[in-house]
Design a protein around this nucleic acid. Structure first.
Length: 278
DNA sequence: ACGAGCGCCTGTCGGC
DNA sequence: TGCCGACAGGCGCTCG
C-alpha cells in the first residue's frame, strides 16, 4: 500500500494511536521506549548490520513520526528509523502476546506490552537506522504539497525534461510520493496523455497537472488511502478511481473505454478521449 | 541522459 | 483439478 497517501495514513496512525475498533486499538508511538529488536528477514534491514542495529536501537524512545515522499521516518532519541514499504509493506502496533502473523520481518518490543511490527509479504521493503535521514532521503525531489512548489516552478521543472510524463512523474528524484495509481489518476484529471513529452506541456496545463496531483493525493489521504487485494487497512480510495484498473470500463467523464498500455514496464491506464496524444 | 531488461519476492487470478 | 504465465501500489542495478 505504498504511495504517499497510504504512507501518510500509516504515519498518522502511528503518530496518534488508535482507540476505535477495540481489536485494533493501540497507543501513539511518540514517548514509547524500545526495549529490544528482532529481525526475522535479514535483508529487510538496509543499514546498519543486525548486531549494531540491536545494540543501538535498544533504549531509544520514539519522539515523532513523519513522512518524506514514500518514506516513513520515526525520529528516535538519537537516531532516525526509516521504513520504505515498497510493494507490500505495512507497520502495525500489536500486543506483545498476540500471535505472530505470517510475513512479519522486523519486530520492535516496546514498553507497556506492545510491539511495532513491519509486515511485508513480498520482502521488498527496507528499514534504515541512521543518524542523518538525508543519507536515505537526500535524492528525493520536492514534496507535492510544498509551498515552494509553485505553478511556475513546476512548469520550469517540466520544461527542463524531454521525458514522457508517466515515467517522469514516477521518478522520485523529480517529485516525491507518486506511484502507479496516483500518477494515472492525476494525468487523467489533468487531461494529459501519459506519453506526452514533459517539455511540450504549456504553462496552463502544467499548472493544471500540479493541481491534479495535489487534489488526487489529497483525496487519497481523505479516504485513508486505497485498499487493494490482500492489503486492507480501511482505506477506500480504490472506489474513486477514474482509470486505474478500469481497463475497458467506460470513462466516468465521457464514456469512452479506458485503455491500458505498458509504459516503462508499468501498467498505465488512460482515457484516449479525455487524454489525447500530442 | 534515457529507456529497456532484469532481479528481488510472494500471492492471486485467468486460461487451458 | 493442476499447471503456467501474467500480473501486482517499487526501485536499484546493469547495459546499450
Amino acid at each position: 500500500m505504498p504511495e504517499l497517501p497510504e504512507v501518510e495514513t500509516i504515519a498518522n496512525g502511528l503518530r496518534l494511536g488508535c482507540s476505535a475498533p477495540a481489536e485494533a486499538a493501540h497507543p501513539a508511538l511518540p514517548g514509547l521506549h524500545i526495549l529490544s529488536a528482532r529481525l526475522l528477514w535479514e535483508r529487510t534491514l538496509a543499514t546498519p548490520t543486525p548486531a549494531e542495529f540491536y545494540t543501538r536501537i535498544a533504549g531509544q524512545a520514539f519522539e515523532s513520526i513523519g513522512r518524506r515522499g514514500k518514506f516513513l521516518l520515526a525520529r528516535l532519541t538519537q537516531d532516525t528509523l526509516i521504513f520504505h514499504l515498497r510493494m507490500s509493506g505495512d507497520l502495525l502496533v500489536e500486543r506483545l502476546e498476540a500471535p505472530m502473523a505470517p510475513h512479519h520481518r522486523l519486530v520492535l518490543e516496546l514498553e507497556g506490552g506492545w510491539r511495532l511490527t513491519f509486515n511485508d509479504t513480498r520482502k521488498f521493503g527496507r528499514a534504515w537506522l541512521v543518524s542523518d535521514p538525508e543519507q536515505v532521503t537526500g535524492k528525493l525531489g520536492p514534496e507535492p504539497f510544498s509551498p515552494a512548489l509553485s505553478a511556475p516552478v513546476f512548469y520550469q521543472m517540466l520544461q527542463r525534461s524531454r521525458r514522457q510524463l508517466k515515467p517522469l512523474l514516477l521518478d522520485q528524484s523529480f517529485l516525491a510520493g507518486l506511484g502507479n495509481i496516483y500518477t494515472d489518476e492525476a494525468l487523467h484529471r489533468a487531461g494529459l496523455h501519459p506519453l506526452r513529452a514533459a517539455d511540450s506541456v504549456p504553462a496552463d496545463q502544467a499548472e493544471a497537472l500540479l493541481g491534479a496531483i495535489r487534489s488526487v493525493l489529497q483525496a487519497g489521504i481523505q479516504h485513508h488511502g486505497a485498499s487493494i487485494d490482500w492489503v486492507y487497512r480501511g482505506g477506500d480510495f480504490q472506489n474513486q478511481f477514474y482509470v486505474y484498473q478500469r481497463t475497458g470500463a467506460p470513462c466516468k467523464t465521457c464514456g469512452t473505454p479506458i485503455c491500458r498500455v505498458v509504459i516503462g514496464q508499468r501498467g498505465t491506464h488512460f482515457c484516449p478521449h479525455c487524454q489525447p496524444e500530442g
